[in-house]
Every structure is written in C-alpha cells, then in structure tokens.
Nucleic acid binder design. Structure first.
Lengths: 205, 205
DNA sequence: GTCTATAACCTGATAGAC
DNA sequence: GTCTATCAGGTTATAGAC
C-alpha cells in the first residue's frame, strides 16, 4: 500500500511494452510506427528511444518476453522423467491451448516474423536443444521409431496451433463464431490426446 | 513465333505482379515500398500506379490471384459426387502439399494478413459456402457425426499446412534441414490419409 | 504508355532545454 | 527522466512532358 515495489521506471516502460505488443500484433512490425506506440502509451518517441534504444530493440524485447513465457511453461513438461508419454501429451496440449486462448494471435505473428527473418531470436531461445535432447523425444522415439518421431511431434503441434492461425478465416467465412471457436478449443484439449493415441497405434505398421 | 498472343501490357504488368508477390511475401505489406517493387520489376512507381491504382490494390490483386489458384484446384475435389471420402482426402492432401511445396510461405503470409484485416478478401472467395455445402462435408459428417466433422477437417488441414508455417523454425533450430524437410512433406502425402483413417476409427467412441 | 519531377506527408532517431 | 523541436531521409501518389 505505502511503498512502490521498486517499479520506478516500470510504470513507464510497462505501458510502452504493453502498447507495443498490442500494436505490433495488430499491424505488423513494418506498419507500426513508434509514434503510434508512444501516443498509445501516453508518452513520446524520445522517451521511448531513451528506454529501448530503437524500434527493432523494443520489438525483440516485447516478443521474446512472450515466447519465453510459453517455453518456460513447456520446458518442465518436456524434461520430466517421471511421467509417461501420454501424460506429457495431455499436459502439453493443456498448457499450449490455455496459452493460445489467452493470446490467440501471438504464434501467427511470430511465425510470420521468423519467416521474414526480422530477427533470429530463435537461437536465443535454444528451442532446438530443448526439443532434441528432451526426455519427451526419447519417449516419442521409443513409441514410433526414430524416423517418425518428428512427424508425430509435428502432428501434435499442428493440431494445437493451426486452429488459432485459421481462426480469422473460420470466423470470417461463417464456419464458426467466437464462442463456438472457444468451445471447440476446449473440446480439443480432450480430443487431441485421443487422436494422437490412435495415430500411435496405426503407426506400428 | 511471329505473333504476340494479345499480351500487349502483360509483359509489363506481369513483371510488376511477380516482383510484388516476391517482395510482399519477403518483407510484409508494410515493409515493402512500391519503389522497391518498381525497381525490382525494372520500371518506376508512376507506371505501377498507372496500372494498379494504388499499393493496396496491387497487393489485393496479387494475393487474390494466388489464393484463387489454390481454391480452383481444391473446389473440384470437394464437390465431386463420384469419389469416396477417403479418395477425396488423398486427392486433397496431394493437391495442397504440392501447392505448398511450390509456394511454401504463401499461407503463413496470407493468414497473418487476414488476421491483421488488411483486406477482407475472404468474402470474395466464397470459401465458407464452398466448404459448408460441399459433398465432401456431407461425407465427412456421415463418417464422424455433425459435431466432429469440423474438428476433423481442421485436423486434416492442420497436418497439411502447419508444417510449412513452422518450416523456418524447424530449419533454424536444426531439427531438420531443407532437403530433409522436402522429403518429410512428400512422406506426409502418404501418411496423412493413414493418420486420418485411424482418427476416424477412434472417433466412433 | 512511359517517365521525370515534385508535392505532401510520415518515418526513426537525436540534440538540447529543463 | 522527460519533453519539444528538428533533422535527414523515405513514403505514396500525381501532374505534366513526351
């Protein structure tokens, strides 16, 4: 109540980051000006550059923070040596879809920015190592054979993530609406593990 | 040999459209200037605006053309009343993946632009009707029940499309390389129908 | 149809007062 | 730390010569 918890500059920088996140996702990097961001945050471009150095740097700080939040939730699941493959898949689907329900547009945006090579921040996340050396991949390889394990991983991630990328299309075409979409994603938390189990069985061909 | 086949202006506009397609996908709409496009096409901005009116219009023309190309290939498969559901899935996977192998970045780009609402061109494609009233959806509903048919369709499209969106991540993280990725996508043309069959079986729960 | 020249404006970044 | 004022350069679009 009586003390600020060492948030001296935070009030200012947090507002800027929040506004930047919203505008970058809404308009894309190239179509967002730091003027807009500053105005939306109730400040000016000079202060913005004072705190973050450049537009590019602000961008990386904001997006990296979000991505690390997702990876931070997934990493413990991937590395847990005391859960079964099936338990991991259930936990992973749950975590991923909950995250995307909070921030449905983040991955569409990030994958597109990575494609344009606007920043090579994937190296900074060490995602490759996290996946490759994980106990999860060991278990998946044991269940599918080495050749198919990556294919199966791709399937699982596809079924979690792609619906969120297609969401604007699904809604704009009238194939579903906002509420129904939300309900479908909750339903998928239950169904994706079921579908994956059936794929794993058929894969022993 | 001796006659131009009524391609008077095409030589000029085709070059512009080609350059626009390449640069829009590479850099995004906001980060691509018509100067770049004009230069890359060997002309100038005045001529570009003469032919296409504005940057936004050029953008819509170029992207709509590509999307219509994909939908044009898919529509006959969806509406064919003389093929089984399984045959349709095989044909659809084949068509979709072949298209994406030619133009791997198109859907990442388009889905992101739709999200930003840079243009509401989906209405122009009548995609919703094409899917909803299709013979394909009738067959899928018969095989899964009405509630799950959309979920299944989403799964199929996810498994075809998402790998291409994740491609930059898969390659930059070292989980695969360009050649291996290509090989994996060819493999998926065979495997996705198998996976879908196993999901359809498990769905009769 | 094609191109040069230019209008009118927006961009990221910074210098300097407070 | 914060802000005004400004710089140098890039932006789309168009007017007008040929």
């Amino acid at each position: 109540m009586e003390k600020k918890l060492k948030e001296d500059s935070t009030s200012s920088t947090a507002k800027i980051k929040q506004a930047a996140h919203k505008l970058f996702l809404q308009n894309g990097y190239g179509s967002t000006s730091i003027r807009e961001i500053a105005e939306s945050a109730g400040t000016n471009i000079a202060l913005l550059n004072y705190h973050f150095g450049s537009k590019q740097n602000l961008f990386e700080v904001v997006i990296l923070e979000k991505i690390q939040m997702l990876l931070g939730r997934l990493a413990p699941i991937f590395s847990d040596e005391h859960t079964s493959l099936d338990q991991k898949i259930v936990a992973m689907v749950d975590t991923y879809i909950d995250f995307l329900l909070e921030d449905p547009d983040l991955l569409t945006f990030v994958l597109n920015e990575i494609r344009k090579n606007n920043f090579e921040f994937i190296a900074k996340t060490r995602l490759g190592e996290m996946v490759h050396q994980s106990y999860f991949m060991k278990q998946l390889k044991a269940a599918t054979g080495a050749a198919n394990s990556l294919q199966l991983l791709i399937n699982i991630v596809s079924m979690m993530v792609y619906p969120f990328m297609a969401r604007p299309v699904l809604i704009q075409t009238g194939l579903t609406d906002q509420d129904e979409f939300h309900q479908m994603m909750l339903e998928r938390k239950k169904m994706i593990p079921v579908w994956v189990r059936s794929m794993l069985k058929s894969d022993v061909s």
